[in-house]
Design a protein around this nucleic acid. Structure first.
Lengths: 353, 353
DNA sequence: TTTAGCACTCGACAGACAAGAGTGCTAAAT
DNA sequence: ATTTAGCACTCTTGTCTGTCGAGTGCTAAA
């Protein structure tokens, strides 16, 4: 069932050309540009075969061929040559990313923007999933009567906070007592274990009126829970309008409408990255993408780690004829730069995800 | 120089029609739809006059007329009728916005998204400018050796924080001492007064080695300064593709390219809102907008307050033929909802901007 | 198995033409 | 003096036509 080597070679050449020009590729032009040692007629026969096998499509009878989803799939699976990126580009990317010292959010933002700029496509960065990471600190800081800052520190080295309301008459000492109780009761518990019940049982025996306690507990709980909120950073959408496949207004509209629903995109990436566990990169092409409205696109995604656990994703959305080889090498580089940088942020302070 | 009442009436009718249809308005259709008690020929003469005066333009000889920038300007200045929004819409908007309890960022995000959805155009929300607000608290919380959370609380009720690096051997007690010293030295100073020098002089006499001190001071300084970072929330850009003026790919591209440069947009709004001090709303039309690439658009912006001072802006970008009356009423409502909500967040705890 | 050659298909493009919308102008009516 | 009916003129839009060229598929020869 696998293609013979000449068919492979021709398919590869067609896809290479199509990626570059976005025009249907014709037999004559193909032999002109690449030197197969056969004539255009032979290539034509091969192309007819490739079409019958489902690797190519013909927009209309007398046009050249364009790759089908299956064609691209074959291309990325068995003939993708991934080079290292140039050292100049590597330097530029890593300069941009390492600008952000301490903060994960900033890091992801920078990475996303570097990726968008360097690839020329849409970049994505998804904040880490922290359900498996555990609580290491929980502090509450009285800002003014009735208003406290709840600070949540997780094993992943991530710090989140939230302003919360409490009754005015709660004193700083009372707050301190409760927050210590919660902290010691929950330290070491993973986010997914923590429920309102767990939180409540953590402070058994604190001597505060229940109503007061409940409110604080609830605030602590929401602060902890919101640490796991999925956030999506997206950049470079504007670039898509210059690709011929999205010149057409209707196409562009469905694309942008879909992209504006970022909960859906985030959810999809999340889901895909959980089922598919390749360590390096992952490619989804056209119809393979289970998101209504992205069937003219391809996804390239990869993961980044916190500690030794997979934590979140970065990715690129582009037209199906994106330059896979370039994108894969760039995204791989960004991935490893992010990982390095996260390691630096965490320092050598141990604690895995 | 001012228009006689019939000309005004005609201009208004033309703009109303054009806002609805996006098609050049012809004399015949105009008298059909509105009952002026004159014939189309008379209207034609008036339209010719209006064109000579610069209020209308003609795409080509035998087409109807479309409003010029000057026409729109006249329209919004002297014949805009702003109704209150329906109570149903008011309820929907305020429900969405008041969802976010305590946090300004969330509030602005929600407001922006409600605005985008209800207007059908692009919504903007700009984080508050806090240069005039003063520091009320500065806390440093040791998260782990070498890593502290710097929390900055401003008079405006805004809380910002930042993770900072310090040398590993700094003890919690030392940190506490320094942060107290900085806090008491800077409390009551406005952000614009605070410089690295001010910060340094705030801790004269603390007995810590200089190198150590300098690093902490620098972190405190950057944490304070970044509280004033301008952030722009933008939503609804995808909707623009469905308006006929941006069907054309080139137009759409310049628009999206411009919108992707959000520092520029933010800066412009900021600048305009400082020069122009109307209390309610502000409209900029087409060529009046000093941002390359937005000349096919109009801006409607307004301000929101923290305490009794103007703090930031919200706004809408749409095609020049946007429904000004609807947008103005909606944005005004959002403005007052935001103001109410900010008042609630600040509570009755005094302290002006 | 490859290739040259040729007939055939189809889209892209330009030109011609008709239809329709809208204007500007003029001359008559109010 | 203002309004209006009427008409010629302009310009866009859509349709239809024919031509050109690119590209294929097939056949027959190498």
């Amino acid at each position: 069932m696998s293609l013979d080597s000449r068919k492979k070679q021709i398919l590869q050449a067609i896809i290479d050309d199509y990626i570059e020009t976005a025009e249907p590729v014709a037999s004559k032009g193909l032999v002109d540009r690449h030197d197969f040692h056969v004539s255009s007629a032979t290539v034509r026969n091969e192309m007819a075969d490739l079409e019958n096998l489902g690797y190519l499509e013909q927009p209309h009878t007398s046009a050249g061929r364009i790759p089908s989803d299956k064609g691209y799939r074959e291309y990325v699976d068995s003939m993708l040559r991934v080079d290292d990126i140039s050292s100049k580009e590597a330097r530029e990317i890593s300069e941009r990313i390492t600008e952000s010292f301490d903060e994960l959010t900033g890091l992801l933002r920078k990475a996303s923007s570097a990726l968008a700029e360097k690839t020329g496509y849409i970049s994505l960065a998804l904040s880490p999933r922290l359900r498996k990471s555990y609580l290491t600190q929980l502090k509450m800081l009285m800002i003014e009567p009735g208003k406290v800052l709840v600070v949540v520190v997780l094993s992943a080295g991530v710090v989140k906070d939230k302003i919360a309301r409490v009754p005015d008459f709660l004193s700083a000492e009372q707050l301190y007592a409760v927050s210590n109780a919660i902290e010691s009761g929950l330290c070491g518990r993973s986010l997914e274990e923590i429920t309102l019940v767990t939180v409540t049982s953590a402070v058994k025996g604190a001597n505060l009126p229940d109503i007061l306690l409940n409110q604080i507990l609830f605030e602590a709980y929401t602060a902890i829970k919101q640490a796991d909120n999925l956030e999506l950073y997206m950049e470079g959408t504007n670039k898509m309008l210059s690709y011929p496949e999205f010149r057409d207004n209707d196409r562009a509209r469905t694309l942008f409408d879909t992209l504006s629903r970022d909960r859906i995109i985030a959810g999809y990436i999340n889901e895909v990255s959980e089922t598919h566990n390749s360590p390096t990169y992952m490619i989804r092409i056209g119809q393979e993408i289970q998101v209504e409205g992205l069937q003219d696109c391809s996804f390239v995604t990869t993961t980044y780690n916190i500690g030794d656990k997979v934590a979140g994703n970065i990715g690129v959305i582009g037209p199906k004829r994106m330059d896979y080889s370039k994108v894969v090498s760039q995204i791989s580089f960004v991935r490893s730069t992010i990982n390095d940088q996260i390691r630096k942020i965490k320092d050598a302070n141990g604690g895995d995800t």
